[in-house]
Design a protein around this nucleic acid. Structure first.
Lengths: 127, 127
DNA sequence: GCTTGCCTTGACGCCGACGACAAGGTTTAG
DNA sequence: CTAAACCTTGTCGTCGGCGTCAAGGCAAGC
């Protein structure tokens, strides 16, 4: 399987796959002409990467999951390192959610205040 | 008031104030030697900007609020344009919160699955 | 042989809100 | 006279995950 095919099957681009490789996440054999050649296992790896990135992981966060797959596990989640990252990411997400909740609350307050102010101004202008 | 003083009183840096000016948010008189001179009103403007940026607004989002202050209002929130932005931002925040909730749910599922898998492996290894 | 369509490496662009540094002018204190 | 502590404009760097050329090689059909 060449890079174009892998990219299409993984729903991404050749550029992206080379990028992952440059960062040590994806591996490829080389054919005599220098083309990258991938096997089916790499497809799973790439899909794992994509799934995690979609969820907000960074490339570094993904590494343990890839290593876990490479170690022969059916899921990238089951290794200790992956679990550590999972816990950390969940905590991060919780923190952001809390933060955004507070922000939402504040913005809602500002909006309410602004509307109330407009009522007042409107009433005065009608007098 | 020179730029250094305004920066300190607003809790930011001179660089940042020049940046805001370059983007049309902050205005300054010039003393004969070319130094920027600010009045108290600009301090309020800068504080408004900072408060909104802290909450996740972009510079463009902030513009209506600054204009509203410049129009003589006691709050930057009370003008129609500001209210539009407020509503939009609240909607954006809500969307992100929803999204993150789903992400959190998924990650929690992966974590649970991983732990369960480890239990199984552990039991097998004990046999 | 020529075109088409793959592939290769390399390097710049992007977005946003600045930080950091360069090279210089000004004012004040000692 | 000089050092210190301001100020000026201008330019490059940051972070991440790529997109987008550029310039060239290789394979295959006509």
């Amino acid at each position: 399987m060449l890079i174009g095919e892998l990219a299409e099957r993984a729903g991404t681009s050749p550029r992206t796959l080379r990028y992952y490789e440059a960062h040590g996440l994806v591996r490829a054999q080389r054919s005599p002409n220098g083309y990258r050649i991938y096997d089916e296992a790499e497809l799973r790896v790439v899909r794992e990467i994509r799934a995690l990135l979609d969820v907000g992981f960074g490339l570094d966060d993904v590494r343990p999951f890839v290593a876990c797959l490479r170690a022969g596990n059916s899921s990238g989640d089951v290794c200790p390192d992956s679990v550590v990252v999972l816990r950390r990411k969940i905590a991060e997400v919780d923190a952001v959610i809390d933060r955004l909740g507070a922000v939402r609350h504040q913005l809602h307050g500002q909006l309410t205040h602004a509307i109330a102010h407009r009522e007042k101004t409107c009433l005065r202008s009608r007098k």
